[in-house]
Amino acid sequence: MQIILDELGRLETETVRQIAEAGTLETLEELRVGVLGKKGRLTAILRGLKDLTVDQKRDVGGRANQLKTKLEDLIVSRREELMGASSEAGLIDITLPGRPLRYGHRHLVTVVMDQIIDIFQRMGFEIADGPDIETDYYNFSALNFPPDHPARDEQDTFYVEGDRLLRTHTSGVQVREFEKRRPPVKIIAPGLVFRNEAVNTRAHCVFHQVEGFYVDTDVSFSDLKGVLEAFVYEFFGPGVEMRYRPSFFPFTEPSAEVDIRCFLCGGKGCQVCKHEGWLEILGSGMIDPAVFKNVGYDSERVSGFAFGMGVERTAMLRYQVNDIRLLFENDIRFIRQIR
């Protein structure tokens, strides 16, 4: 019996040391199987107890079970330790690149267009769109552009087969929507527009516009200013100074160009604002009664405003892009810079 007890003592000393030295979960597991497993050393000892007397069994058995519990506890806690810090510590070069997962970018025009649309949607404007290939009626006549009037020169037009043209502005959507609806009508119309102009750094023959209009029983220029101020504050920053310059568009009267204080120079004058201290951002005005007449609205009962802005221009201002052609060349090194 003493032999057995001695063996237990040796086993304990040896195993406790081995547990402490086990460097990996695998070694620890091997150790556990070797001692406590079905064919393990301690299991074998316990199995040998059957030849002993009851008293001996009690003494040796108690000791062996005590040891078993002790070793199990030690293994569990060593396992915990090993799980907390794997053996690879110090072996990893964390500067190696991660698995390449691509993330794409929206086009600059989409990014800015979405921002603009989002602001107006929050003010209760509904999105509508119209055809890019338009008739003279929707693009010009219904918008109070008389035939053979110099106002048409301001918008050089591409004509296509079949007596149609490429819309020069998204304002035609006004007429199309007015024809379909009765006031109140509160809509923004984003889309592509075309101008028959030579392409250079500042102008392209294609660009995007967002047109907005609101017609109701009691809409004034004052309301237009409120909506545009809300837009400017949200898009360019709260408190940005604005000015309204009377201008001329055949389909609005009074008409105004809207400028904001140049956010690059604060109004002192710089290249971007052409040393004027102001940046033109959109055109606007009160919808002309002639337009209402064309769609069967009674201008004595309803009034409304309309505004339109160039998305590329706004985008270029925001990101200080100096060449509009970059927007349509689609170089991914350009697209990837957009946030």
Partner: peptide, 16 residues
């Protein structure tokens, strides 16, 4: 036009 007051009400259809 700069002297026209800025209306800060929102109006129009509630559901768009």
């Amino acid at each position: 036009l700069d002297s026209i007051p800025v209306s800060r009400r929102n109006s129009g259809p509630l559901y768009t």
